[in-house]
Design a binder for these strands. Sequence first.
DNA 1: CCTACCGATCGGTAGG
DNA 2: CCTACCGATCGGTAGG
Lengths: 195, 195
Amino acid sequence: MTRSTPLNRSTVLDAARDLFAAQGYRGTSMKDVATALDVRAPSLYNHVDSKQDMLFAIMDAAMDRALGALDEALRGVDDEAEQLRLATESLVLDFLRHPAEVTICNVEVRSLDHATRPAIIAKRDRYARRVRSIIDAGCASGRFATATPQLAAYAVLELGNGAKSWFASGGPLTGQQVATAYGEFALLVVQDAGH
Amino acid sequence: MTRSTPLNRSTVLDAARDLFAAQGYRGTSMKDVATALDVRAPSLYNHVDSKQDMLFAIMDAAMDRALGALDEALRGVDDEAEQLRLATESLVLDFLRHPAEVTICNVEVRSLDHATRPAIIAKRDRYARRVRSIIDAGCASGRFATATPQLAAYAVLELGNGAKSWFASGGPLTGQQVATAYGEFALLVVQDAGH
DNA sequence: CCTACCGATCGGTAGG
DNA sequence: CCTACCGATCGGTAGG
């Protein structure tokens, strides 16, 4: 009888990801990760340097993936309204497809070593700044009409979490249907009431 | 020289709250809490039963406070649009005034004992259901016009987190200004695009 | 990949 | 309110 999953860096990180998301970084032991893979804890160190190494690798890859998806979604699109809609859909779909990574990125920044935390924060800020700059550009061109563009940006960035919560609660819509609805919400948020 | 803060259940819970919010429940030791109060760890047990007791007490009180604030905000208000605006403002102001408790309620449900977790989940669901029922009522009366009322409810519930993030980043507006803006956003979200 | 083991820290108790 | 201490568990290493 062979092991259900081969043991390598990728499968170790996948197991750690699921446990970190469900129980938290501090609430997960190396033994927990090893047990999920049906090995003993010391064996993990053949594939990862440390528990902290796993956390950073998971978060860094998740941020790169989200940033790449945003780039891809916006490629060749000039209209600010279309940019905002597509950016929101990209964000929502990323949250729905990768809820474990997103939970970890939201919660475990505080568990990162002081040495590596700034690198993750920088990528998170880059993501936020892209959304904010779409909204600012739309306000400058007159395409959007909100008096509080900064607040609108934070509201839009939070929509992914709303979609994730809804999806986790077992709602019946497909991911694309949810993403489409939230893309519409984002466009509404950048319009002042009454317009 | 006397101690800066008197030691009683209330001050112990306040210290635990700040540390749980900043470092997480599992990332905070009884010694950490005791050190913040300038005593030794065993002394805490004169005021609380256990670490788990502190977590539950903090979360339960926070949920009761939020539910009470929502009741207060909606008292005597019949129009669904005004209800949704006031509910959103109440939610946002609660998030801005009590960011530590809100962070704990968002993150540490998984750290609750299996025996006490359902009680907290029930209160959180009660809160969500009130917001959802406002939106459903507004859709039924024709006051709102969204094709996806369930998704709108999750989006509105998430707005408080957006406000909290924005506030934590050092934005220059007052809490009431942020709450007012997010109250407007909520009303926009329950209108279909183009209406 | 394993067993055996390290020092450190954990929540909590005894007993005053 | 303290000191002293308990068993359990932690991340990680030695050595094969």
